[in-house]
Design a protein around this nucleic acid. Structure first.
Ligand SMILES: [Zn+2]
Ligand SMILES: [Zn+2]
Ligand SMILES: [Zn+2]
Ligand SMILES: [Zn+2]
Lengths: 149, 149
DNA sequence: TCTTGACTCTATAGTTACTACAGAGTTTAC
DNA sequence: GTAAACTCTGTAGTAACTATAGAGTCAAGA
Protein backbone atom coordinates (compact mmCIF):
# COMPACT_ATOMS: atom_id res chain seq x y z
CA UNK A 1 0.00 0.00 0.00
CA UNK A 2 1.08 3.56 -0.62
CA UNK A 3 1.36 6.22 1.99
CA UNK A 4 -2.13 7.61 1.45
CA UNK A 5 -3.80 4.33 2.24
CA UNK A 6 -1.51 3.77 5.19
CA UNK A 7 -2.46 7.18 6.51
CA UNK A 8 -6.14 6.36 6.30
CA UNK A 9 -5.75 2.93 7.82
CA UNK A 10 -3.44 4.02 10.62
CA UNK A 11 -5.04 7.30 11.47
CA UNK A 12 -1.72 9.09 11.15
CA UNK A 13 -1.40 11.84 8.61
CA UNK A 14 0.87 11.42 5.62
CA UNK A 15 3.23 14.04 6.93
CA UNK A 16 3.36 12.41 10.32
CA UNK A 17 4.29 9.08 8.75
CA UNK A 18 7.08 10.67 6.78
CA UNK A 19 8.15 12.51 9.91
CA UNK A 20 8.32 9.28 11.90
CA UNK A 21 10.47 7.79 9.17
CA UNK A 22 12.80 10.76 9.21
CA UNK A 23 13.08 10.51 13.00
CA UNK A 24 13.87 6.83 12.81
CA UNK A 25 10.72 5.60 14.54
CA UNK A 26 9.73 3.48 11.58
CA UNK A 27 12.15 2.17 9.04
CA UNK A 28 12.26 3.46 5.51
CA UNK A 29 10.09 1.25 3.30
CA UNK A 30 10.76 0.05 -0.18
CA UNK A 31 9.98 2.34 -3.05
CA UNK A 32 8.19 1.80 -6.30
CA UNK A 33 9.87 2.56 -9.58
CA UNK A 34 8.36 6.00 -9.43
CA UNK A 35 9.88 6.50 -5.96
CA UNK A 36 6.65 6.09 -4.01
CA UNK A 37 6.86 4.54 -0.56
CA UNK A 38 5.43 1.04 -0.50
CA UNK A 39 4.31 -0.40 2.82
CA UNK A 40 3.27 -3.79 4.03
CA UNK A 41 0.83 -4.29 6.85
CA UNK A 42 3.56 -4.72 9.49
CA UNK A 43 4.03 -0.99 9.67
CA UNK A 44 0.42 -0.68 10.78
CA UNK A 45 1.33 -2.39 14.02
CA UNK A 46 4.30 -0.16 14.50
CA UNK A 47 2.22 2.95 13.97
CA UNK A 48 -0.35 1.59 16.36
CA UNK A 49 2.37 1.05 18.93
CA UNK A 50 3.53 4.61 18.48
CA UNK A 51 0.02 5.93 18.78
CA UNK A 52 -0.54 3.99 21.97
CA UNK A 53 2.63 5.40 23.40
CA UNK A 54 1.78 8.91 22.33
CA UNK A 55 -1.61 8.55 23.97
CA UNK A 56 0.35 7.85 27.15
CA UNK A 57 2.26 11.06 26.58
CA UNK A 58 5.58 9.37 25.94
CA UNK A 59 7.90 11.53 23.91
CA UNK A 60 9.13 10.41 20.53
CA UNK A 61 12.59 9.89 21.91
CA UNK A 62 11.21 7.68 24.63
CA UNK A 63 9.25 5.74 22.05
CA UNK A 64 12.36 5.41 19.99
CA UNK A 65 14.02 3.92 23.01
CA UNK A 66 11.20 1.44 23.47
CA UNK A 67 11.36 0.48 19.82
CA UNK A 68 15.04 -0.25 20.16
CA UNK A 69 14.32 -2.34 23.25
CA UNK A 70 11.83 -4.34 21.22
CA UNK A 71 14.63 -5.17 18.87
CA UNK A 72 16.82 -6.53 21.66
CA UNK A 73 14.42 -8.62 23.73
CA UNK A 74 17.01 -9.96 26.13
CA UNK A 75 17.65 -6.53 27.63
CA UNK A 76 16.60 -6.15 31.26
CA UNK A 77 13.27 -4.42 31.50
CA UNK A 78 14.15 -2.01 34.28
CA UNK A 79 14.50 0.88 31.89
CA UNK A 80 10.95 0.41 30.73
CA UNK A 81 9.66 0.36 34.25
CA UNK A 82 11.55 3.49 35.17
CA UNK A 83 10.15 5.30 32.20
CA UNK A 84 6.63 4.36 33.18
CA UNK A 85 7.22 5.29 36.79
CA UNK A 86 8.58 8.65 35.80
CA UNK A 87 5.53 9.31 33.71
CA UNK A 88 3.26 8.31 36.53
CA UNK A 89 4.93 10.92 38.69
CA UNK A 90 4.81 13.53 35.96
CA UNK A 91 1.14 12.87 35.38
CA UNK A 92 0.41 13.11 39.08
CA UNK A 93 2.16 16.39 39.50
CA UNK A 94 0.53 17.80 36.40
CA UNK A 95 -2.85 16.81 37.70
CA UNK A 96 -2.09 18.57 40.95
CA UNK A 97 -0.95 21.65 39.12
CA UNK A 98 -4.05 21.70 36.99
CA UNK A 99 -6.31 21.27 39.95
CA UNK A 100 -4.69 24.19 41.68
CA UNK A 101 -4.99 26.12 38.45
CA UNK A 102 -8.63 25.28 38.21
CA UNK A 103 -9.25 26.39 41.76
CA UNK A 104 -7.43 29.64 41.14
CA UNK A 105 -9.42 30.30 38.00
CA UNK A 106 -12.65 29.61 39.81
CA UNK A 107 -11.72 32.02 42.56
CA UNK A 108 -10.79 34.57 39.98
CA UNK A 109 -14.06 34.14 38.19
CA UNK A 110 -15.94 35.05 41.35
CA UNK A 111 -14.24 38.41 41.45
CA UNK A 112 -16.31 39.79 38.63
CA UNK A 113 -19.42 40.34 40.68
CA UNK A 114 -21.47 41.22 37.61
CA UNK A 115 -19.58 44.37 36.96
CA UNK A 116 -19.98 45.77 33.50
CA UNK A 117 -16.73 47.54 32.88
CA UNK A 118 -13.24 46.26 33.15
CA UNK A 119 -12.14 48.65 35.85
CA UNK A 120 -14.97 47.64 38.17
CA UNK A 121 -14.69 43.97 37.39
CA UNK A 122 -12.10 42.92 39.92
CA UNK A 123 -10.67 40.17 37.80
CA UNK A 124 -7.90 42.20 36.31
CA UNK A 125 -7.20 43.78 39.66
CA UNK A 126 -6.80 40.35 41.11
CA UNK A 127 -4.10 39.54 38.61
CA UNK A 128 -2.03 42.54 39.59
CA UNK A 129 0.61 42.10 42.29
CA UNK A 130 -1.10 44.60 44.60
CA UNK A 131 -3.86 47.17 44.16
CA UNK A 132 -1.38 49.71 45.60
CA UNK A 133 -2.51 52.74 43.67
CA UNK A 134 0.17 55.35 43.64
CA UNK A 135 -1.11 58.13 45.95
CA UNK A 136 -0.30 60.99 43.61
CA UNK A 137 2.19 62.07 41.04
CA UNK A 138 3.29 58.63 39.98
CA UNK A 139 0.67 58.21 37.30
CA UNK A 140 3.04 58.77 34.47
CA UNK A 141 2.45 55.39 32.94
CA UNK A 142 -1.18 55.90 32.02
CA UNK A 143 -1.22 59.43 30.79
CA UNK A 144 -4.67 60.98 31.22
CA UNK A 145 -4.64 62.68 27.86
CA UNK A 146 -3.32 61.72 24.52
CA UNK A 147 -4.17 58.85 22.28
CA UNK A 148 -2.03 55.88 22.91
CA UNK A 149 -1.77 53.67 19.91
CA UNK B 1 17.73 49.41 36.84
CA UNK B 2 19.20 47.46 33.99
CA UNK B 3 17.84 44.24 32.60
CA UNK B 4 19.98 41.96 34.75
CA UNK B 5 18.64 43.35 37.98
CA UNK B 6 15.11 43.31 36.64
CA UNK B 7 15.56 39.68 35.76
CA UNK B 8 16.66 38.85 39.28
CA UNK B 9 13.95 40.89 40.90
CA UNK B 10 11.14 39.66 38.66
CA UNK B 11 12.16 36.06 38.35
CA UNK B 12 11.95 36.26 34.56
CA UNK B 13 15.07 35.54 32.58
CA UNK B 14 16.73 38.28 30.60
CA UNK B 15 15.78 36.65 27.34
CA UNK B 16 12.21 36.29 28.45
CA UNK B 17 12.02 39.98 29.28
CA UNK B 18 13.38 40.92 25.88
CA UNK B 19 11.00 38.43 24.32
CA UNK B 20 8.03 39.98 26.07
CA UNK B 21 9.13 43.35 24.80
CA UNK B 22 9.40 42.06 21.27
CA UNK B 23 5.92 40.53 21.54
CA UNK B 24 4.48 43.77 22.81
CA UNK B 25 3.58 42.54 26.28
CA UNK B 26 5.68 45.17 27.94
CA UNK B 27 6.60 48.44 26.35
CA UNK B 28 10.11 49.21 25.23
CA UNK B 29 11.93 51.06 27.99
CA UNK B 30 14.26 53.98 27.72
CA UNK B 31 17.85 53.31 26.87
CA UNK B 32 21.07 54.57 28.33
CA UNK B 33 23.59 56.29 26.12
CA UNK B 34 25.25 52.96 25.64
CA UNK B 35 21.93 51.50 24.44
CA UNK B 36 21.20 49.52 27.59
CA UNK B 37 17.57 49.07 28.59
CA UNK B 38 16.70 51.12 31.65
CA UNK B 39 13.68 50.13 33.70
CA UNK B 40 11.75 51.69 36.53
CA UNK B 41 9.92 49.66 39.11
CA UNK B 42 6.58 49.88 37.32
CA UNK B 43 7.61 47.13 34.96
CA UNK B 44 7.98 44.82 37.93
CA UNK B 45 4.23 44.93 38.39
CA UNK B 46 3.65 44.25 34.75
CA UNK B 47 5.93 41.27 34.78
CA UNK B 48 4.22 40.05 37.91
CA UNK B 49 0.87 40.37 36.16
CA UNK B 50 2.20 38.37 33.25
CA UNK B 51 3.60 35.72 35.53
CA UNK B 52 0.31 35.41 37.35
CA UNK B 53 -1.48 34.98 34.07
CA UNK B 54 1.05 32.45 32.79
CA UNK B 55 0.62 30.50 36.00
CA UNK B 56 -3.05 30.33 35.06
CA UNK B 57 -2.02 28.95 31.68
CA UNK B 58 -3.20 31.95 29.73
CA UNK B 59 -1.42 32.29 26.42
CA UNK B 60 0.69 35.30 25.65
CA UNK B 61 -1.87 36.49 23.16
CA UNK B 62 -4.59 36.28 25.77
CA UNK B 63 -2.40 38.17 28.20
CA UNK B 64 -1.79 40.76 25.55
CA UNK B 65 -5.51 41.11 25.26
CA UNK B 66 -5.87 41.57 29.00
CA UNK B 67 -3.13 44.16 29.00
CA UNK B 68 -4.95 46.11 26.34
CA UNK B 69 -8.14 45.88 28.39
CA UNK B 70 -6.31 47.35 31.34
CA UNK B 71 -5.52 50.30 29.19
CA UNK B 72 -9.17 50.91 28.36
CA UNK B 73 -10.96 50.48 31.69
CA UNK B 74 -14.40 51.41 30.41
CA UNK B 75 -14.65 48.33 28.21
CA UNK B 76 -17.27 45.79 29.25
CA UNK B 77 -15.74 42.93 31.15
CA UNK B 78 -17.55 40.12 29.39
CA UNK B 79 -14.50 39.24 27.34
CA UNK B 80 -12.48 38.66 30.47
CA UNK B 81 -15.14 36.41 31.90
CA UNK B 82 -15.38 34.37 28.75
CA UNK B 83 -11.66 33.86 28.69
CA UNK B 84 -11.68 32.62 32.25
CA UNK B 85 -14.63 30.36 31.61
CA UNK B 86 -12.96 28.86 28.59
CA UNK B 87 -9.88 28.13 30.60
CA UNK B 88 -11.91 26.54 33.32
CA UNK B 89 -13.29 24.13 30.75
CA UNK B 90 -9.89 23.51 29.23
CA UNK B 91 -8.41 22.78 32.62
CA UNK B 92 -11.24 20.42 33.46
CA UNK B 93 -10.90 18.42 30.30
CA UNK B 94 -7.14 18.28 30.66
CA UNK B 95 -7.49 16.98 34.18
CA UNK B 96 -9.79 14.28 32.91
CA UNK B 97 -7.36 13.34 30.18
CA UNK B 98 -4.49 13.16 32.59
CA UNK B 99 -6.42 11.06 35.04
CA UNK B 100 -7.25 8.58 32.32
CA UNK B 101 -3.60 8.65 31.28
CA UNK B 102 -2.52 8.02 34.81
CA UNK B 103 -4.85 5.07 35.13
CA UNK B 104 -3.60 3.62 31.87
CA UNK B 105 0.00 3.99 32.94
CA UNK B 106 -0.71 2.34 36.25
CA UNK B 107 -2.35 -0.59 34.51
CA UNK B 108 0.58 -0.81 32.18
CA UNK B 109 3.03 -0.80 35.05
CA UNK B 110 1.37 -3.86 36.53
CA UNK B 111 2.14 -5.85 33.42
CA UNK B 112 5.81 -6.17 34.26
CA UNK B 113 5.38 -8.85 36.87
CA UNK B 114 9.03 -8.67 37.94
CA UNK B 115 10.26 -10.01 34.68
CA UNK B 116 13.90 -9.37 33.99
CA UNK B 117 14.10 -9.19 30.25
CA UNK B 118 12.16 -7.04 27.89
CA UNK B 119 10.53 -9.88 26.01
CA UNK B 120 9.08 -11.39 29.18
CA UNK B 121 8.11 -8.09 30.70
CA UNK B 122 4.65 -7.66 29.23
CA UNK B 123 4.77 -3.90 29.17
CA UNK B 124 5.97 -3.63 25.62
CA UNK B 125 3.58 -6.37 24.56
CA UNK B 126 0.78 -4.39 26.05
CA UNK B 127 1.61 -1.43 23.87
CA UNK B 128 1.40 -3.48 20.70
CA UNK B 129 -1.94 -3.67 18.91
CA UNK B 130 -1.99 -7.46 19.21
CA UNK B 131 0.62 -10.08 20.02
CA UNK B 132 -0.29 -11.73 16.71
CA UNK B 133 3.08 -13.20 15.81
CA UNK B 134 3.35 -13.96 12.15
CA UNK B 135 3.19 -17.79 11.91
CA UNK B 136 6.15 -18.23 9.60
CA UNK B 137 7.94 -16.72 6.68
CA UNK B 138 7.00 -13.13 7.41
CA UNK B 139 10.04 -12.38 9.47
CA UNK B 140 11.79 -10.44 6.78
CA UNK B 141 11.80 -7.20 8.73
CA UNK B 142 14.26 -8.28 11.38
CA UNK B 143 16.99 -9.89 9.39
CA UNK B 144 18.78 -12.51 11.50
CA UNK B 145 22.24 -11.63 10.28
CA UNK B 146 23.94 -8.47 9.31
CA UNK B 147 24.82 -5.35 11.24
CA UNK B 148 22.14 -2.77 11.10
CA UNK B 149 23.50 0.71 11.51
C1' DT C 1 45.74 54.52 30.92
C1' DC C 2 45.15 50.03 30.05
C1' DT C 3 43.02 45.95 30.93
C1' DT C 4 40.13 42.65 32.76
C1' DG C 5 35.71 41.02 33.84
C1' DA C 6 30.90 41.53 34.12
C1' DC C 7 27.28 43.07 31.76
C1' DT C 8 24.43 44.09 27.67
C1' DC C 9 23.22 44.39 22.72
C1' DT C 10 21.19 42.15 18.24
C1' DA C 11 20.38 38.35 15.51
C1' DT C 12 19.99 33.66 14.84
C1' DA C 13 19.14 28.80 15.81
C1' DG C 14 17.26 25.24 18.66
C1' DT C 15 13.46 23.00 21.26
C1' DT C 16 8.66 19.45 20.35
C1' DA C 17 5.71 17.06 17.38
C1' DC C 18 3.81 18.05 14.09
C1' DT C 19 1.17 20.84 10.06
C1' DA C 20 1.11 23.30 5.79
C1' DC C 21 2.65 24.66 1.93
C1' DA C 22 5.47 25.09 -2.98
C1' DG C 23 6.88 23.13 -6.92
C1' DA C 24 7.90 19.05 -9.16
C1' DG C 25 7.15 14.33 -10.66
C1' DT C 26 3.95 9.92 -11.06
C1' DT C 27 -0.02 7.29 -11.71
C1' DT C 28 -4.74 6.42 -13.02
C1' DA C 29 -9.02 7.16 -15.40
C1' DC C 30 -11.39 8.65 -19.18
C1' DG D 1 -3.56 12.60 -24.55
C1' DT D 2 -4.91 14.96 -20.77
C1' DA D 3 -6.82 15.91 -16.38
C1' DA D 4 -7.28 14.60 -11.65
C1' DA D 5 -5.43 12.48 -7.89
C1' DC D 6 -1.58 11.13 -5.75
C1' DT D 7 3.26 11.37 -4.15
C1' DC D 8 7.94 13.32 -3.77
C1' DT D 9 11.52 16.63 -1.36
C1' DG D 10 12.40 20.55 1.05
C1' DT D 11 11.19 24.41 3.61
C1' DA D 12 8.70 27.24 6.90
C1' DG D 13 5.46 27.83 10.56
C1' DT D 14 3.57 26.79 15.31
C1' DA D 15 4.30 28.44 21.29
C1' DA D 16 7.06 30.23 24.50
C1' DC D 17 10.79 30.42 25.37
C1' DT D 18 16.33 29.03 25.79
C1' DA D 19 20.92 29.25 24.18
C1' DT D 20 24.25 30.54 21.76
C1' DA D 21 27.74 33.97 18.66
C1' DG D 22 29.98 38.02 18.09
C1' DA D 23 30.12 42.67 19.16
C1' DG D 24 29.74 46.62 22.13
C1' DT D 25 29.57 48.99 27.04
C1' DC D 26 30.78 49.90 31.66
C1' DA D 27 33.18 49.79 36.28
C1' DA D 28 37.10 48.81 38.94
C1' DG D 29 41.84 47.68 39.67
C1' DA D 30 47.05 47.92 38.43
ZN1 LIG E 1 9.08 11.08 29.69
ZN1 LIG F 1 -16.48 41.39 35.36
ZN1 LIG G 1 -6.95 30.28 26.26
ZN1 LIG H 1 9.30 -5.71 33.36
Amino acid sequence: MKIGELAKRSGCSIQTIRYYEKEGLISAPERTEGNFRLYNSVVLEKLSFIKNCRALDLTLSEIKHLVSLQNSPETPCEAVNEMIDTHLLVAESRIEDLQKLHGDLKQLRLKCGNARSVDQCGILGELLPKPERSPSGTRNERSPSGTRK
